[in-house]
Amino acid sequence: MENQTPLVEMRDMHIAFGGNKAVDHVSIDLYPGEVVGLLGHNGAGKSTLIKMLSGAYKADGGEILINGELAEINNPRDARGYKIETIYQTLALADNLDAGSNLFLGRELLTPFGFVDDDAMEAETRKIMSRLNPNFQTFSAPVSTLSGGQRQSVAIARAVYFNAKILIMDEPTAALGPQETQMVAELVQKLKAEGLGIFLISHDIHDVMELCDRISVMKNGKLVGTVRVEDVTDDDILGMIILGKKPMKNTS
């Protein structure tokens, strides 16, 4: 894997809000078919880091390479152009619209005359939902009327539908029950097998250890370090998160 070109390379990324250095010269990378976990306390800068990749924020500095080539990502549209899809921590759903409208927001299916084709979008939404979350049945109500888990599956469906190459999942299981969480885990494994690269942000160390190949830990906007999962224990990771120290052995 190491002599392959990385799918994503973020080099020396930094961004500050006022005086707050939210992300402070961080470099991470991601290979095809790999899941990289991002861990760290609340406010460590994980969401901010991946938002620079998804086009939500414009970095103050640093460079992003996609397949080894310098990428210009100035807005979410650019990121979608590079086949980067994101499940945001906040889900980023328009609560007043139904599942289909949210799934296709910004990429509506159109009739031959150029009008929004709600029926076609609903049909597609039903198809993908039957695979992702067969319990999902509410297709014409505003997503504000849905449960947390259902809303999350809409956000996940949106990221998966458009054949992403790079998937960013920011706390994708935060609102899910055990069964739905298991479904997401299976989805991650399936997508990984299809060769996608996935950044997975999660609070659950156990989840991350199970699903990820490598883990990058952040603290106070800085990268503590990146380790291979097989080289470390849960306690090593905890130490990195809490103390901000890399374990002595097996640095990779």
């Binding site: 998804s54 939500a56 979410p76 549209r77 980023a92 328009a94 927001l105 910004g106 509506e108 929004v116």
Partner: peptide, 22 residues
């Protein structure tokens, strides 16, 4: 039935989500 209208309502429902959708 138009994208414009859809975006009007999406932006009203959640401006950030609209922005993040490009």
């Amino acid at each position: 039935r138009t994208r414009f209208g859809r975006y009007v309502f999406a932006t009203g429902g959640n401006p950030d989500a609209a922005e993040l959708s490009g």
